[in-house]
Design a binder for these strands. Sequence first.
DNA 1: TAATTATTTTAGAACCATTCCAAAACGGAG
DNA 2: CTCCGTTTTGGAATGGTTCTAAAATAATTA
Lengths: 124, 124
Amino acid sequence: MTTKRAAILQVLRESEGHLQPDEIYRRAKELYPGMVLATVYNNLHALCEAGLIRRVRTADGADFYDKTPTPHEHAICTSCGLMLDLELGDLLQEFATKTDLPILSYDLIVHTQCPKCHAEKAEA
Amino acid sequence: MTTKRAAILQVLRESEGHLQPDEIYRRAKELYPGMVLATVYNNLHALCEAGLIRRVRTADGADFYDKTPTPHEHAICTSCGLMLDLELGDLLQEFATKTDLPILSYDLIVHTQCPKCHAEKAEA
DNA sequence: TAATTATTTTAGAACCATTCCAAAACGGAG
DNA sequence: CTCCGTTTTGGAATGGTTCTAAAATAATTA
């Protein structure tokens, strides 16, 4: 665990919970001016392998990194792009009962409207 | 419905069911030598909007296009990359019961081992 | 501590699927 | 046949991520 790696982990842990690499880079650079995007990627990978954080891949746009590595699902607000946590139960288990194929893992992203954007929309 | 658009639809319909743009391009070019990748993309978009086919987005690599536009889920073989159809029921409905957030849509890709690769693995 | 080796960091190039652009080609309506 | 809107085309641009090889840093050994 190097200094910069710790800094990147800190940035994510002190965040709302889900950040994209470019935003992590932006925030980490404030703490360590000599920070570079490649280093951010390197360390995000390392932290994932160490099980300290979790990568959340999306079909459109950049991936997110989740400070909470325990399994859960994610929703993205279609208005502001915010990522939210979801608890949908043991889908792996559930899917397994519905097919004969071996289910190794899955990528799931739900599209939603976050409470803030939902409220703003109601006002208008 | 132009000639080339029909050709692209035909390629997909005569396929195993799920193809990626580059493969559609390769096959369509055999029918129409003057075919260009941009045209494939244009027409895939148009066919999607017309509801004749369906785009299946993935977090890693190229999107797939599905000749069956009715809603169902998809699995990808981690060995050979083949896309398979899954029937997992009305997940939209199901997810809605498990959260207060409005669920607009979702992207789901299950990672599996297709029967063929599974068999080959058993042999070895 | 010095020397050696392994790991990180860095800058920038490379990658790849997709989109964008503006010009040329096409196709149907009149 | 002509005109106008749509399609097609080639190529450049985009954007996130990965790769590469060299420099810097850290860890290990003597």
